[in-house]
Every structure is written in structure tokens, then in C-alpha cells.
């Protein structure tokens, strides 16, 4: 409870600011709509109102301000509208037995989750393998690391369409594959950097100790470097899974895809349904939260089993 309180306070503040922002954001379209349906609006005419600030419009039409909170296609929906849309496309549909219908956010979240999972798996494997290479090979240390850093300076939105085009050129029909690759592309870097630090974390004396036992390099890896890197691994996995999710959603944007949260956001934009965009955004955020929480749990269990939970405290 003591932990939850600050979180709830911040959440309440965000919702409050959001709710207050709805009126100025929507007042113009609210007044336009009211005028069309015959209400008296000051000043008259949409063009005239362009010259007047939103604050003045609100002050001069106080009776019409509540309309800002009831727009069908608002510039900024209210928290309540988003919550309703979210429920209508998730829980309500699930209760109807249509959880996996194409109109259901759960269906799109499931599509995104699959690609995220494969991208995470691929990116994590590449990151760990790369880190081992960098730590054990001087050549790779000098050659791979700069490329890993450069790879992250290329905007993923620029790269994503190329990967998708390339994949279809190679005859890969399954749209999940390029999505997973884009996801892995974002995910491998934090894992690589974290694991390099982790594998290098043992002190010189610990490495010397192994030398006095004439330990082989592979014994040094399995008995010292790898266990020492586990706390670092989990820290990077948490960053990595969030990056993998972002990568998947970006990968769903330019494809003309019709499935996945990214596609849902793009379609919502094209068809002017902001509520759908917002609901998809929230679904993505919830998904990220669940994934990170899951890894956090795995971290706690693992570190406790290794006896590291208390040592790290």
C-alpha cells in the first residue's frame, strides 16, 4: 500500500491534467458542430473563430464547453471515452465470445505479442552471442562494438519498410518474420551492452584465482563470468522486451498490415477514429507493463535462487 500510494497520486494527477486539457483541445470542433445544429455561438462562423484563442472561445461560450467532452471524433478524447472504447473492444467482446474477432483489440494484441516474443528471442540470442564474442575476442571487440552502436543511430522507421520489402523479395510470405527482425534489431542492443558489462564484471583477483587453478576458458565462462552477468542480464532483458514491443509496432505501421496494434493505430489514423488509436496505445502500454512485470518476477525468483537477492540489497 505504501508503494502504491505515490503511483496512484501521479496517476490521478495525469488523469486530472488530461481531463482539463480536453476542453481547450476540442472547443473549436465542439463549437463548429453546435453551430451546424443551430446553436448560438459567439463569434459566428468557423473562420471568425480562427482569429480567437481557445481560452476566449471557452469564456464566451460557457454553456457549450461541456460539448467538448462529448465529441464523437475528438482531437483529444476524455479518459472516460478511451476507457469505454477500450472496454468495448476487449472485455465486452470477450464476454460476447468474440475475443479473437478482427475487431477485438485482444486479437491485435495477440498478433503483436507473438512477433514481440520471436523478436525478443532472436534479439536476446544475438545480443548474448555478440557479447560473448566481444568479451572473448579482441578482434570482435574492436570490430563489432562500433557497428552495434552505429546500428542504433539509424532510425528504425526508415529501416522498417526496407526490411519488409526485402523479406517479400526473398519470398517470405509470413508477415511475422520481418516484424520479428525489426523487433530483434531494436532489442539486441541493450542486451549486448548489458551482457558485455556483466561478463566483464568479475574483478581481476577473481580471474587470477581461476588462473591459479589452471582453469580452462570455458570453466571461467560457466563458473564465473556467466553467473556474474545474470543481474546485468535481467536489467537488459527488461529494456530489451520493451524495445522489442516498440519494434514490432513500428514494423506493423508501414506494411499495409491489417493485423496487430501498429496496424490498428495506422488504420485509426487513416479513418479518423481517434478513440481506436487511443485504445490501441493503451493496449500497447498495458502489454509492455505486463511483459516487464513478468521479467521482473523472473528476475526476483532467479536471483533469490542464486542467493544474490539479499547480497545485492
Amino acid at each position: 500500500m505504501r508503494k502504491a500510494l505515490p503511483v496512484l497520486v501521479v496517476l490521478a494527477a495525469i488523469l486530472g491534467i488530461w481531463w482539463l486539457a480536453v476542453a481547450p483541445m476540442n472547443i473549436r470542433i465542439a463549437l463548429d458542430g453546435a453551430e451546424r445544429s443551430g446553436a448560438a455561438v459567439v463569434p459566428e462562423g468557423a473562420r471568425e473563430r480562427q482569429e480567437v484563442s481557445v481560452w476566449a472561445l471557452m469564456a464566451r461560450n460557457p454553456d457549450l464547453v461541456p460539448l467538448s467532452y462529448a465529441q464523437e471524433r475528438p482531437r483529444l478524447p476524455t479518459p472516460g471515452q478511451v476507457a469505454t472504447e477500450f472496454w468495448d473492444t476487449t472485455g465486452a467482446m470477450a464476454l460476447d465470445g468474440r475475443a479473437m474477432s478482427r475487431r477485438s483489440l485482444l486479437f491485435h494484441a495477440w498478433i503483436t505479442l507473438q512477433s514481440t516474443f520471436w523478436g525478443f528471442l532472436l534479439g536476446t540470442s544475438l545480443g548474448i552471442a555478440g557479447a560473448i564474442g566481444i568479451v572473448y575476442s579482441r578482434t570482435l571487440n574492436l570490430s563489432l562494438m562500433p557497428w552495434a552502436i552505429i546500428s542504433q543511430t539509424i532510425p528504425i522507421v526508415a529501416l522498417a519498410p526496407m526490411i519488409i520489402v526485402l523479406a517479400s523479395q526473398l519470398g517470405i510470405e509470413e508477415r511475422g518474420v520481418p516484424k520479428a527482425i525489426i523487433s530483434a534489431y531494436l532489442c539486441f542492443f541493450p542486451v549486448l551492452v548489458g551482457m558485455v558489462s556483466g561478463l566483464r564484471s568479475p574483478a581481476a583477483a577473481q580471474l587470477d584465482l581461476l588462473r591459479t587453478y589452471s582453469a580452462t576458458p570455458s570453466q571461467g565462462f560457466w563458473k564465473l563470468r556467466l553467473p556474474a552477468s545474470v543481474p546485468y542480464l535481467f536489467a537488459s532483458l527488461k529494456v530489451g522486451i520493451a524495445a522489442a514491443l516498440v519494434g514490432t509496432i513500428v514494423g506493423e505501421l508501414p506494411t499495409g498490415a491489417i493485423r496487430g496494434l501498429g496496424a490498428r493505430i495506422l488504420i485509426g489514423d487513416q479513418f479518423g477514429t481517434p478513440l481506436a488509436i487511443w485504445a490501441a496505445l493503451f493496449m500497447a502500454a498495458i502489454l509492455a507493463g505486463v511483459l516487464v512485470t513478468f521479467l521482473d518476477l523472473a528476475q526476483r525468483v532467479t536471483l533469490r535462487r542464486m542467493g544474490l537477492a539479499e547480497a545485492a540489497r
Binding site: A205, Q206, L209, T212, K223, P227, A228, M306, L308, A311
Partner: peptide
């Protein structure tokens, strides 16, 4: 057998 200044036990 070598004993270092830091005990250097593996925490895990």
C-alpha cells in the same frame, strides 16, 4: 593455494 586480500567468494 593462493589467498587474496579480498576473500573473493562467489556470492551466488
Amino acid at each position: 593455494g593462493y589467498v587474496f586480500q579480498a576473500a573473493g567468494l562467489y556470492p551466488w
